[in-house]
Amino acid sequence: MAKKVSLLEDFTKGIWKENPILIALLGLCPTLAVTTSVENGIAMGLAVSFTLVCSSTIISLLRNIIPKQVRIASFIVIIATFVTIADRFLAAFYPEISKNLGPFIPLIIVNCIILGRQEAFASKNNVGRSILDACGMGLGFTLILIVLSTIRELLGSGTIMGFKIMWDSFSPWMVMILPPGAFLTLGLMIGASNWINDRRKRS
């Protein structure tokens, strides 16, 4: 029974307790850059999750073969391979999204979430646990991206996924889809998550 609980824990810790963005502050560049619309946010979240799960699987399988001295370089090459696959896939099937995300798809290679999970988890644990961990982290990342992009798209252009939500006389807050809006919204979200954690600890 104890083992089952810890397996569940491997999965769920990424969503809130060790959330890659709100708690660990990893992978902030794509988080801020692509969340101008919900569609981009979801695409980015899925691309990162795909890379994370695939590279965690491979690296966890190879963890006893890769020599310790060259592990970072090997991790990066494996990650870069999967990012190339994701990039080609998006360019072939969703050229519009691929154009919007621009250089931020290849930049998944240097996303600290992915390298961080390989170093901290996949290179030390078996395949099953590594996949669960990667899925949880990917989900946590995607959820935050969706929340952030929903706020920004709703206030910045009055729409969600391209559908008009706000009333007619609503004038969009241009600043929300520009860079300052990204920083401000994420700052407030981190503050809010700290506040919720504090409240929980006290009660």
Binding site: L25, P179, A182, F183, L184, G187, L188, I190, G191, N194
Partner: peptide, 10 residues
């Protein structure tokens, strides 16, 4: 981090 983000926004 939170205040850093908000300052970066300004």
């Amino acid at each position: 981090a939170a205040i850093t983000m908000i300052i970066a926004g300004s």
